[in-house]
Design a protein around this nucleic acid. Structure first.
Lengths: 164, 164
DNA sequence: ACAAATAGTTAGGCTTACCTAATAAAGATA
DNA sequence: TATCTTTATTAGGTAAGCCTAACTATTTGT
């Protein structure tokens, strides 16, 4: 099985490959803000599990298996970013959240998210869904930060406590 | 700082408290499918960090700090479940995904999700958003598995739904 | 009240990450 | 070519979790 960490390394390798055209252990360390020995260790692990091929002082390349997994992770990441932006999360936060969430979403949730994103993108211009939603978000944020805070909380916890 | 694991234990304690009225280490072990020594260790840690008060053979109660955190986690969990169900994820999967995702969503994303869920719940009956979306999901699943590509725009976003 | 059942802890080890310090290998340059 | 810089590895240690086996302490039942 692959761990969350292995996935992070694979994704980083993928990104470096597409940004610089080659991948060195040093660059991975920089990107992930981790020591070089840590990278050495993970490279060894990923090699042993046949996700990558590695030559000291040379570079890293994906095996078919590794490429497939890296693409899959990338796909989840992009989907999450796209979704988060639709619901109004900033680009920056969307990126960092996607990095964390991408390891945990089940296939069913991926499918549903994909459906949602597609559905929204198919809305006719005339629907103004996004504008309406954005406006609603802005408004509810304002209200929340001022006087209606209490109201909202009661509503929320009232619902929740019944379930328990 | 609290780790993902500490959060899981706190959430479990919260759930047990509200389901049975008291919390024993043994029950935590069962619920989390973990050995009793593991629970002992975590209880010690949570006590040291003042999230709970614990007495051997007695029970576990939250401190104010612990209660606050547990509620916060619970809040994130419920919100995620609610959202996932809206986009068509099954109850079961929504629960398990929420358990994993709840540790990683940023405050901004929480806010946006909350906005989205509220927004959807405020849609007028006439919009039929959910029905349309559900149907779209079902169809697109079929399409995907039979490798066809077709445009549903017209069918699902005819004039009567412009208000969405 | 005392033995059995239940609950909890300690001891000792495993795994996956991380780190720093020291070392080795390769590449670049004088 | 010899040395210096860069790159990578090894050695040795920490921390958070998990486990089993063995032990202790409490509660319960007769």
């Amino acid at each position: 099985m692959t761990t969350r960490n292995m996935e992070d390394y694979l994704e980083t390798i993928w990104n470096l490959q597409h940004k610089k055209g080659y991948v060195k252990a040093k660059d991975i360390a920089e990107r992930l803000e981790v020591s070089r020995p840590s990278v050495s260790g993970m490279i060894k692990k990923l090699s042993e599990n046949s996700y990558i091929l590695y030559e000291k002082y040379g570079g890293i390349v994906f095996t078919e298996k590794g490429k497939k997994l890296a693409q899959e992770i990338k796909r989840r990441h992009s989907l999450l970013v796209e979704f988060l932006k639709i619901i109004g999360v900033s680009e920056e936060n969307a990126q960092t959240d996607a990095c964390k969430l991408e390891h945990d979403v089940s296939p069913e949730t991926i499918t549903s998210l994909l459906g949602f994103v597609d559905f929204i993108s198919l809305l006719p211009e005339s629907s103004k869904w996004k504008e309406n939603f954005q406006e609603y978000l802005k408004k509810s944020l304002l209200e929340r930060s001022s006087n209606k805070k209490k109201n909202y909380k009661e509503k929320y916890w009232g619902r929740e406590n019944k379930k328990i």
